Simulated scan of single mutants.
Amino acid sequence: MKRILVTGATGQIGTDLCDELRKIYGEENVISSARNAKSGITDNCIFHKLDCRDSKGFYELAKKYKVDTIIHLAAVLSAVGEQNPNLLWDINVNGLYNALEISRELNCSLFVPSSIGAFGPSTQKDNTPQITIQRPTTAYGISKVSGELLCDYYHSKYGVDTRGVRFPGLISYKTLPGGGTTDYAVHIYYEALKSGHYSSFIAEGTYMDMMYMPDAVDCIIKLMETDSSRLIDRNAFNVSAMSFEPEDIRKSIQRIIPEFTMDYNVDPIRQAIADSWPNKLDVSAAREQWGFDPKFDLDKMTDDMLRHLKNR
């Protein structure tokens, strides 16, 4: 990567990722874009308002800056998508099609995140394989499976250097979550410091894969910098750093804030989504093909989250 265009740059992943990319590649070589205002982007950074559905504007921006890499993060997430599936499909699939066409025309490498949501209730729950049945029951999951297949097609048909991972729930102290099913694991830290109590919308005993944002950012950069010849699966690597249920995260927080309490007010929509996903992914393909190696477990993440949020 030498010059990088990031779509959806003001979202949960984009905020952290763009900061790190600028440190590595220089501010002049990272072009941030998003549909909305430049929230969370510092004044001296290159930023353009861009709706990924605008194929002409998307193409002109990539061509203007002579980018060699597109990191396409623009997407509608799972819980929000169930409320507006038409918008989700328009952004998640039609926007991705634009990114693929622009990458083909301008010879760019393309990173597209998939998700644990690409699996469904018929998928093996524990140690979920890299290649397995995928029959998601949400609009979000269907859009992500479609994206995986589109990226595979553009690589095999046109030689586009497409790459991606299936992200689990992502946890960050820099930005609030944007409507995902795993968001309880972010909210709980804010409420632990703010009120000392949290009501979880995910039920006790519900295990989901998670990852701390520094590990997520590192795995994007590491995957994109890996020699293409090493990649077999290419567009949908399972990645995860930990798997836990709400009681696990409560106990981790209580090591530092003993008076913290938690109860449950389960959201049936998000709970149904969570129940359709795996408990724990097999990440061996990512480890073997490009050296995926997360650094944070649950307690290390809790320590770091609470420290940073307290300072804020």
Results as ranks from 00 to 15, higher is better:
88 L>G: 14
26 G>V: 00
17 L>Y: 05
35 R>D: 09
115 S>A: 13
226 T>F: 08
304 D>A: 06
284 S>A: 12
33 S>A: 10
125 K>Q: 10
202 I>R: 05
51 D>E: 12
9 A>N: 05
46 I>F: 03
158 Y>F: 15
8 G>D: 07
122 S>V: 09
270 R>D: 12
249 I>Q: 11
33 S>H: 02
123 T>P: 02
28 E>C: 08
176 L>H: 12
22 R>I: 12
35 R>Q: 13
289 Q>R: 04
129 P>I: 07
301 M>T: 01
102 I>A: 11
185 A>N: 14
130 Q>S: 04
122 S>R: 12
243 S>W: 12
301 M>R: 01
157 K>I: 06
123 T>W: 00
34 A>E: 10
75 A>S: 15
253 I>Y: 07
17 L>R: 06
215 D>I: 05
11 G>R: 06
122 S>F: 12
193 L>E: 07
263 D>E: 11
243 S>A: 15
290 W>G: 03
70 I>H: 01
16 D>F: 08
295 K>G: 10
167 F>V: 02
138 T>C: 08
252 S>A: 14
218 D>L: 03
299 D>V: 09
36 N>R: 14
277 W>Q: 09
100 L>K: 10
139 A>E: 13
131 I>C: 02
222 K>F: 02
68 D>M: 11
38 K>D: 14
141 G>L: 05
289 Q>G: 09
45 C>H: 10
195 S>L: 13
84 N>Q: 14
260 F>S: 07
247 E>I: 07
236 A>E: 00
90 D>Q: 15
70 I>S: 03
70 I>W: 03
73 L>R: 02
161 D>G: 00
148 E>T: 08
160 V>Q: 06
213 M>V: 08
182 T>Q: 10
212 Y>F: 15
266 V>M: 09
309 L>R: 04
6 V>D: 07
85 P>K: 04
239 V>R: 07
211 M>I: 15
93 V>D: 10
285 A>M: 13
296 F>S: 04
145 V>L: 13
91 I>E: 10
77 L>G: 09
163 R>G: 01
282 D>E: 06
214 P>E: 05
288 E>M: 12
40 G>D: 04
285 A>G: 02
253 I>W: 10
78 S>M: 06
292 F>E: 08
9 A>P: 01
235 N>Y: 02
44 N>P: 02
272 A>G: 15
65 Y>Q: 04
137 T>E: 15
49 K>Y: 08
312 R>F: 14
174 K>V: 02
50 L>K: 05
103 S>H: 00
171 I>E: 04
299 D>E: 15
270 R>T: 13
146 S>L: 14
52 C>H: 00
265 N>P: 00
39 S>H: 12
195 S>P: 00
19 D>H: 11
